[in-house]
């Protein structure tokens, strides 16, 4: 792997790490498997791109992207809580609807941002080399997201949110309306995913309706890798672990793509297969270990 590829993997690991924190919030903390993310990542990208080309500041664009993601997550959660649609199905419905909505927002399947202002400009202006600007901004953003999430989960509301995923009957009999908690939680998660998508779009200079495909699988893979490698014994540890898991995941992908065995090498379109195998492996590894022990 070249230094350039390694740098790229680190960059991607951090920016998608924000998405991974969102997936961790629903999948692990709320126990709410949420596929909305495949739609809310390009939603964030689309909103941010349209906002910037419309003349808004790139920071405001990030904010609106986050709000859009929150709304998308809230719709999924509403379908589940108020209308009793199974969470997986509810999230697939929102995801499918977002495909059309994203094309409407962009006025087409993609939108270019070349030459428009982005959140990377001020960093470059400070004298940071252009090829490192992404890394700096992403490291900052991921750090802030992690710190805010850890703080949030330790507040009274955050504790109620964790309890909702842990034991809904208990927290209901403590007077918490779990519907509200789930709506806020799934909303926040998708807000983070959209923020991640918005940053990616500003970095690569384009938003594309297809950029969200496989987001949930990449997110799950990162969460599982992070938890397995770094452990998840406390909130702080777990949040750091899943972001590091995201970095490891991108490295694994970069490594696989640079591999050459005889005449065979992987192509980027093999990514989904590799990721799926990775997740399957991580999911069945504990079972296999258990079986070995009982031999």
């Amino acid at each position: 792997m070249t230094v350039y590829a390694a740098l790229g993997a680190l960059e991607q690991g951090l920016v998608y790490g924000i998405m991974v924190v969102g997936v961790y919030l629903t999948f692990r903390i709320l126990d709410f498997p949420d596929l909305t993310v495949d739609g809310s990542l390009p939603l964030g990208a689309a909103i941010s791109a349209v906002a910037i080309t419309g003349g808004l500041s790139p920071y405001l664009a990030l904010f609106f992207a986050g709000c859009g993601g929150f709304a998308a997550g809230a719709v999924t959660a509403l379908l589940n809580t108020k209308f009793k649609i199974l969470h997986l199905l509810a999230s697939i419905l929102t995801m499918i609807a977002l495909y059309s909505i994203n094309i409407r927002i962009m006025g087409g399947p993609n939108i270019a941002l070349i030459g428009s202002p982005t959140v990377f400009d001020p960093v470059v202006a400070l004298g940071v080399p252009a090829h490192l600007a992404g890394l700096v901004v992403f490291a900052w953003s991921a750090g802030i997201v992690m710190a805010v999430l850890v703080w949030f989960l330790k507040t009274a509301f955050g504790q109620a949110l964790m309890a909702t995923g842990d034991n809904p009957q208990m927290i209901t009999s403590q007077g918490v309306n779990t519907h509200v908690v789930i709506i806020v939680g799934v909303g926040l998660s998708n807000g983070l995913v959209a923020l991640s998508g918005a940053l990616v779009a500003q970095n690569q200079g384009a938003a594309d309706v297809g950029m969200g495909i496989g987001t949930i699988i990449a997110g799950l893979a990162s969460v599982i890798i992070g938890e397995t490698v770094f452990g998840a014994h406390s909130i702080v540890r777990a949040v750091i672990a899943v972001v590091l898991g995201s970095v490891l995941y991108r490295f694994a992908i970069a490594l696989a793509l640079s591999l050459e065995i005889g005449g065979f090498s992987f192509s980027p379109s093999d990514l989904n297969l590799i990721t799926a195998l990775l997740v399957i492996g991580a999911l069945i590894a504990p079972q296999l270990r258990q079986k070995m022990r009982f031999r």
């Binding site: 949030f152 330790k154 507040t155 009274a156 509301f157 955050g158 504790q159 109620a160 403590q174 007077g175 918490v176």
Partner: peptide, 10 residues
């Protein structure tokens, strides 16, 4: 129990 839960420390 039965009170509002805000953003103060848990």
């Amino acid at each position: 129990r039965g009170q509002r839960r805000g953003l103060g420390p848990g």
